[in-house]
């Protein structure tokens, strides 16, 4: 190789390898601090009993804590993970279906749900519940 080519090659290799090494170190750091089970797997495990209680196909509703804004990123992520876990059942992000998955982080009184026309079918723990919307025939 020409001497100038060696210089340019070393420059590109050094900058590129440093970038590769930097990502490796950032990842290694995150790896040592990561929980044993990732969030999606943990959520999917929590939903196993609910999945067994539902029909394999069809459409069900979804509701979370009252007052949660529609563009709340965490709430959207949880809805998407629940859809991912329950597919091919379609989980729509509203409660206008006969059966509705409840995903709550705050304690909700059964009475307040009943006032809104929802009957508790079964509770699965960790804030997950199956509700029946009595307004939908």
């Amino acid at each position: 190789m020409y001497p100038r080519a060696v210089t340019a090659t070393l420059l590109v290799a050094a900058v590129s390898l440093f970038s590769t090494f930097r990502l490796f170190m950032q990842t290694a750091d995150a790896y040592t601090q990561a929980p044993a089970i990732d969030g999606v797997t943990e959520y999917t495990e929590r939903l196993k009993a609910l999945k067994d209680a539902l029909p394999p196909t069809g459409v069900i509703g979804y509701m979370t804590d009252p007052g949660t804004p529609a563009n709340n990123t965490d709430a959207m992520a949880e809805h998407h993970i629940i859809q991912y876990a329950l597919a091919p059942l379609v989980v729509v992000p509203n409660a206008n279906q006969k059966y509705v998955v409840g995903n709550f982080h705050k304690t909700i009184a059964t009475g307040s749900l009943r006032d809104q026309g929802f009957k508790l079918v079964r509770e699965f723990g960790n804030g997950i519940a199956l509700l029946e919307n009595e307004k939908v025939k």
């Binding site: 090494f21 990502l23 490796f24 990732d38």
Partner: peptide, 21 residues
Amino acid sequence: LSIFTVTMMTSIAPHGEWDAW
């Protein structure tokens, strides 16, 4: 380095990131 990086990242998030799931 890239193989180790991808392996560690996949181990941290085996289902990938948001658009993946």
